[in-house]
Nucleic acid binder design. Structure first.
Length: 794
RNA sequence: GGGCGAGUGGCGGAAUUGGUAUACGCGGCAGACUUAAAAUCUGCUUCCUUUACCGGAUUAUGGGUUCGAGUCCCAUCUCGCCCACCA
């Protein structure tokens, strides 16, 4: 060879890795283990995206880094394959999702291999493979057995285009996350996982995680714990009562009305002959409105039910209204209106002329100038509580409510239970059947998997049932001799990805989802990398981890030790890459046009800090190619020197790259390698220089580095450095006068350790003197560690 | 509206604990090699002034703390993300 030919080198090494399988992880090995994974991809028809390459390359870089330190590395790979795109494609083309998925996986695998990833390919998984989803169904049944998978009928987000319900986090600005159409509310009986049972633990353990603060805050806000009280209000002239949730029971005396959400079941019992028509019309209208319409109309609306409840604190009758600013799914779906101290209640009361009673006095020194004061202060107009501080009253009134038997302390969460039913074909069938009375029964574990049948017509309809309902053969099932009908809903795709991190540790087990011994050996996952799903997936895995720990299948309660949340790669114009804009960079094109995978990988790690978005640059990638080309030239096309001129620089580089890797500063690690190569071009390189260079380069450009190491006859064990060599004999001392840099003086290292000596040398310097002569030296600050002297003159 | 984060050359970015701002790369300029171009190699490249030296300014803006601030504090502006009637 006479010049760097990346495609040739890469083909050679990929073939060798395919044959020798050097990336196989070993169960129960004595070496320290390291389990890394990326969020597994949905294999789309478009193939790998440069965003995938960034994500996978970060994981690969670390996997190889730890492998070179002789750790037992597990770096698996898989595909998250259930979901709407494959199904919609099937509806359009008639090609089955099974077939499309297989084609796409084959393509993804081929492309991932072209990038030279150090993947243990024997552990590949695919969520739509019956071998896999059999165990997703098994997981569901464990939750079902413990009462953590349950059915409930209430209003759900419904996408009229995709004809399926959606979970909260799948609704973005009132629109479906897949098709973008506005969602509606529809009353349906649906399956849920009771994630709220773990709300406190999910919240409390967030702080202990080595995750980005941004994600941790998002999860905390999502869970949204708030402490308050439930208070019961008697309905005037009837034996009934309405319970509200409030975080401010100390304002109970100021409650002059009550408001129910339009979805509230009690409304029909509260209306009178006079109000029935108006209330029903209002509720019907509110439910019909899309979420966007509801939000657009900031003006408060509402209607009086005709009934009154009794404020238990004042004993006064207060009117009960219906208004859509009260949410059905939070608290009790009913709110006590305190217009003096809540902005929303204030707007409502002002609009409908309801009385406003102040019960908390704003402190005199308060700078709060909002129309209604929502802070703490002295209690007034509250009978026996007058004169107390509001915070004090909050505790006391809880006791009082409890004594009266009409209220209690209560913790409420913003997070709702996880809606998991989907009325779509291409998902994991829910392993449930119904008897003739409509009661749900678990499919016995020995009848798993409930196979997704091949059908001809995937089209969903407005019936609220998936296309599976049309398969008579699928619908019929016999359990314990009793004929039953199968559940036709499939599971939300997030269920499939809530346990795959443990399946990776035991991917071919046909007796259980995973062997706890293997999962406990490898997991929790040491490093997990992705750029999406800040709450949903990352909260659901935590939930399942806690559940399966409780069930004895795992001996840890948090599934992911360290989370790396990588940024996106945008088009050169800074906009999101998209087919319709025609600005997509295809990673395989980049490789094939001659740059090769090593350049692509290294470039994407060099492009900027891994956790920030970056714009692709067609020019800058050439710089990385030139750098690798120079590495190649040093080994294959340049004469080696025999002296050891670069020993200090070499050790310095080894240290810098190692430390940068531990900090995940991939971009500066590459920069350090570039500097080292520039130095070697200047001074000439000996064999040791080149061996260290190749070793440090290997996590980034594994093919080229392997080629270099083979040529040099060296192993790939990560280099160490000698701190002693990094201490120079002579150092550059920086002298500032009044904080301004005035001189740089070469001094002996031992002199730079001695503050007194530093001061002497600095003051004696000719150049420094020109700034100090004729002036009074007020103070001299000499810092040995930074070799810096600052002279303050007047 | 609330919460969080960020603003550094022509561009992507570096500066690890408050201590030499602008590493590395792109782009640009000049030179070497070449008949020529590409490739490659070498040098220069924050801005102002200057042939050059010297000097001055500079990390969104204004103030503060400090011997010393890109880094800490306060205010303002701009951008990004998340949540958004959660009682």
């Amino acid at each position: 060879m006479s010049h760097y030919e990346p495609l040739k080198i890469e083909e050679k090494w990929q073939k060798r890795w395919e044959e020798e399988k050097p990336f196989a992880a070993k169960d129960n090995d004595k070496r320290p283990k390291m389990y890394l994974a990326e969020m597994f991809p949905y294999p789309s028809g478009a193939g790998l995206h440069v965003g995938h390459v960034r994500n996978f390359s970060i994981v690969d870089c670390l996997a190889r880094f730890y492998a070179q330190q002789e750790m037992n590395v597990l770096r698996p790979f898989g595909y998250d394959t259930f979901g709407l795109p494959a199904e919609n494609y099937a509806i359009k083309t008639g090609i089955s999702p099974q077939e499309v998925t297989k084609t796409n996986i084959d393509n993804f695998r081929k492309q991932a291999k072209r990038l030279g990833y150090a993947i243990d390919w024997s552990r590949e998984i695919n969520t739509s493979d019956p071998e896999y989803y059999k165990w997703t169904q098994w997981c569901f049944l464990q939750l079902f057995k413990k009462g953590l998978a349950y059915q409930a009928e209430n209003y759900q987000w419904w996408c009229p285009v995709d004809q399926t319900v959606l979970a909260n986090e799948q609704v973005e600005n009132g629109c479906c996350w897949r098709c973008g159409h506005e969602v509606e509310k529809k009353k349906m009986k649906q399956w849920f996982f009771k994630i709220t049972a773990y709300a406190d633990e999910l919240l409390d353990e967030i702080d202990s995680l080595d995750w980005p603060e941004k994600i941790k805050t998002m999860q905390k806000n999502w869970i949204g714990r708030s402490e308050g009280a439930e208070v019961e209000f008697q309905i005037a002239g009837s034996g009934g009562k309405i319970t509200v949730f409030t975080t401010r029971p100390d304002t109970l005396f100021g409650s002059t009305f009550m408001v129910l959400a339009p979805e509230n079941e009690m409304i029909k019992d509260l209306v009178t002959d006079d109000t029935r028509e108006a209330v029903e019309a209002y509720c019907k209208d509110a439910l019909k409105k899309s979420e966007i319409e509801r939000q657009e109309n900031k003006e408060k609306t509402g209607v009086f039910t005709g009934s009154y409840v009794i404020n238990p604190a004042t004993g006064k009758e207060i009117p009960v209204w219906v208004a859509d600013y009260v949410l059905a799914g939070y608290g009790t779906g009913a709110v006590m209106g305190v217009p003096a101290h809540d902005e929303r209640d204030n707007e409502f009361a002002t609009k409908f002329n309801l009385p406003i009673v102040k019960v908390i006095e704003k402190p005199e020194n308060s700078t709060d100038d909002s129309k209604c004061y929502a802070g703490e202060g002295e209690v007034i107009n509250s009978g026996p509580f007058n004169g107390k501080q509001s915070s004090e009253m909050r505790e006391e009134i809880n006791d009082w409510l409890e004594q009266q038997g009409i209220g209690r302390k209560k913790v409420t969460y913003r997070m709702r239970d996880w809606l998991i039913s989907r009325q779509r074909y291409w998902g994991c069938p829910i392993p449930i059947a119904y008897d003739k009375d409509g009661n749900p029964h678990a499919i016995p574990e020995d009848q798993l998997p409930v196979m997704l049948p091949k059908i001809d017509d995937y089209k969903p309809d407005a019936s609220g049932r998936s296309a599976l309902a049309k398969s008579e053969e699928f619908m019929k099932v016999t359990i314990d001799g009793e004929e039953m009908t199968r559940e036709t809903d499939t599971l939300d795709g997030y269920a499939c990805s809530s346990w795959y991190l443990w399946r990776y540790t035991d991917p071919h087990n046909d007796k259980m989802a995973w062997d706890p011994k293997k999962a406990n050996f490898w997991a929790p996952t040491d490093i997990y990398c992705g750029g999406d799903h800040a709450v949903a997936h990352l909260l659901y895995v935590r939930f399942w981890c806690k559940f399966f720990a409780d069930e004895g299948y795992l001996n840890f309660r948090e599934p992911i030790k360290k989370l790396l949340y990588n940024g996106y790669i945008n088009a050169p114009d800074g906009k999101k890459m998209s087919k319709s804009k025609g600005n997509v960079i295809d990673p395989l094109d980049v490789i094939n046009q001659g740059y090769g995978a090593d350049t692509l990988r290294t470039y994407e790690l060099f492009i900027g800090p891994y956790n920030l978005d970056a714009a692709w640059s067609t020019e800058a990638i050439g710089g990385v190619y030139r750098f690798l080309n120079r590495c190649w030239t040093l080994v294959f096309d340049k004469k080696q020197i025999t002296e050891d001129k670069n020993i200090v620089y070499r050790h310095k580089t080894a240290k810098k790259v190692t430390e940068d890797m531990h900090r995940n500063n991939f971009n500066t690690a590459v920069a350090a390698l570039m500097e080292f190569v520039n130095e070697l071009f200047k001074n000439g390189a000996n064999k040791e220089d080149l061996v260290v260079l190749a070793k440090l380069l290997k996590p980034f450009a594994p093919h080229l580095a392997s080629e270099m190491l083979e040529e040099l006859g060296a192993d790939d064990i990560w280099p160490k450095w000698d701190e002693k060599l990094l201490v120079a004999d002579e150092v550059e001392m920086v002298v500032q006068v009044n904080g301004k840099l005035r001189a740089k003086i070469q001094v002996a290292a031992e002199d730079a350790e001695d503050a007194k000596k530093m001061e002497e040398i600095a003051l004696a310097d000719e150049k420094v003197k020109t700034y100090t002569d004729g002036k009074e030296v007020v103070k001299v600050i000499a810092i040995a560690k930074t070799h810096l002297v600052n002279i303050v003159v007047k």
